[in-house]
Each structure stands twice: as C-alpha cells, then as structure tokens.
Simulated assay, not measured.
Amino acid sequence: MNKSSISILLVAVMVFLSSCDPSAKDPNVMFSEKHQDPIAELAVTDKPDHSKMSYQQTFYVPIYSDIYSDSENQKVLLSATLSVRNTTLDKPLYINKIDYYNTNGDFVKSYIDGPIELPPMATLNYIIEKEDDSGGSGANFIIDVEGVDETVKPVIEAVMIGNFSNKGFAFSTEGTPVVH
C-alpha cells in the first residue's frame, strides 16, 4: 500500500469515527473553546443560596426558526444564536431556566437541568441549528436569572441568520422582562 492510499484510508476512518459521536456535529460543542457543551461547562454542583439573591427576573426572548420570504409563501429556515451576557465586573449571574416554546406556546425543550453560573463579564452563546424548525416562526425562550443584587442584570439577545436565493440576511431580537 502506498502513502497516498494510507492517507486516504486514515482520513476515511477519522471521518467515520467522528460521525459516530453526535456531539461532534453539535455546533455548540464544535465552536466552544474547550469543545464541550457550553451549558454543561457552566453547571454548578452546589446550588446557589436563593435567600441571598435579591435580583430575580424572567425574560421572554423571541426566536424565529423560519420566516416567509415572498408572495409564494416560501419558508426560509434560520439558524439562531441565543446570547446571555453577564454585564457585571465582579458578580456571577445564575441562570435557573432556559426553556424553549413553539409558535403555539407549547413547551418544546428545556436546555438546562439545574442552575448554571455565568461568571462576571462572561457570555453564554447557544446555537439553534437551521434544521431545527421545531419552534416555528413564533418560537421563544423563557429564561430565569438571579443575582446577589440589582447590579447583576443580564443582556439577553438572539441573532438569527439565513439566506434565500443569493441573498444573506441577519437580524436580532432582545429579551424582554416578564412581569409576574
């Protein structure tokens, strides 16, 4: 066997092996610095003491999984990035819920099992792939956060990108506080 045949065989084996691991295709794993799920990286083992948290807020974040592009009602699928940013210089932000709902308001998925801690000035970005159209055109996230005081207020946004024909586009939405 010559060197080029061995090289081709090695590449084929590597491609085959990487296709066996579903997390290898997850963009949240692929694009993270440590090649781990960013939510799993932030999970806390010791639950925060809720009695010490004076700031608690729920946010509604609109997500568009798809939009209609023209009078023929062609649906264009979009990828979205949910971004939660801790804006404080010295205090962690705790995220207790990241729940995804579809256009009809039906619960689709919870992205966390327990609280996660976002360090000062850190950002959690989470990608919803273009092929995931489970949310529909009116999808949304409900996100619960808390912090030790009122200075721990996050910036929560979503950025959607897509393309239609030879045109690319992007737009963003902001998280809106929910009044209980």
Score class of each variant (00 low, 15 high):
158 A>M: 07
175 G>F: 10
119 P>H: 03
44 V>R: 02
139 A>K: 01
133 D>H: 03
169 F>W: 03
27 P>K: 01
137 S>N: 12
127 I>Q: 03
179 V>H: 10
86 N>A: 08
76 V>K: 00
97 K>L: 06
16 F>H: 12
144 D>G: 01
171 F>H: 02
157 E>Q: 11
113 D>F: 07
123 T>A: 10
26 D>T: 12
91 K>F: 11
81 T>G: 00
83 S>E: 04
32 S>W: 03
118 L>M: 11
161 I>Q: 10
32 S>K: 06
14 M>L: 15
78 L>R: 01
135 G>N: 07
84 V>P: 02
97 K>I: 01
110 S>G: 12
153 K>A: 14
97 K>S: 03
90 D>I: 15
64 Y>E: 13
18 S>V: 08
144 D>T: 10
116 I>F: 12
116 I>D: 09
129 E>I: 10
1 M>G: 12
99 D>E: 15
152 V>T: 14
21 D>G: 00
103 T>N: 14
77 L>G: 03
27 P>G: 01
97 K>G: 01
16 F>D: 05
104 N>M: 05
37 D>L: 03
152 V>C: 11
109 K>G: 02
63 I>H: 00
24 A>S: 15
69 S>Y: 08
91 K>L: 15
5 S>G: 13
47 K>W: 05
135 G>E: 07
54 S>C: 05
76 V>I: 10
159 V>Y: 04
73 N>Q: 09
133 D>C: 02
30 M>N: 04
45 T>C: 02
97 K>V: 03
15 V>A: 15
55 Y>P: 00
77 L>N: 05
115 P>E: 13
66 D>N: 14
132 D>L: 06
11 V>D: 05
61 V>K: 00
146 E>G: 04
144 D>M: 00
43 A>I: 02
127 I>V: 14
120 P>E: 02
55 Y>Q: 14
38 P>E: 06
105 G>I: 11
27 P>I: 05
141 F>P: 04
164 F>A: 07
4 S>M: 08
57 Q>P: 02
52 K>Q: 12
158 A>I: 10
143 I>M: 10
51 S>F: 00
55 Y>E: 13
143 I>E: 04
13 V>W: 07
103 T>P: 10
156 I>K: 13
88 T>D: 14
33 E>G: 03
44 V>I: 13
121 M>G: 01
159 V>P: 00
161 I>R: 09
58 T>R: 14
10 L>N: 06
35 H>I: 04
148 V>A: 10
89 L>N: 15
111 Y>I: 01
119 P>E: 08
123 T>R: 13
156 I>P: 11
57 Q>G: 04
170 A>Y: 01
106 D>H: 09
53 M>Y: 05
112 I>H: 03
76 V>T: 09
129 E>W: 06
149 D>C: 11
85 R>I: 12
88 T>W: 07
120 P>S: 07
131 E>C: 00
89 L>Q: 15
137 S>H: 05
175 G>C: 10
168 G>S: 08
9 L>S: 10
39 I>C: 11
176 T>V: 13
159 V>I: 12
41 E>T: 14
103 T>W: 06
4 S>V: 10
90 D>H: 14
86 N>I: 10
20 C>Q: 15
36 Q>P: 00
5 S>M: 08
108 V>T: 14
158 A>C: 13
87 T>Q: 14
12 A>S: 15
7 S>G: 04
124 L>A: 04
82 L>P: 07
180 H>W: 01
10 L>H: 04
135 G>H: 03
143 I>Y: 08
163 N>I: 02
147 G>W: 04
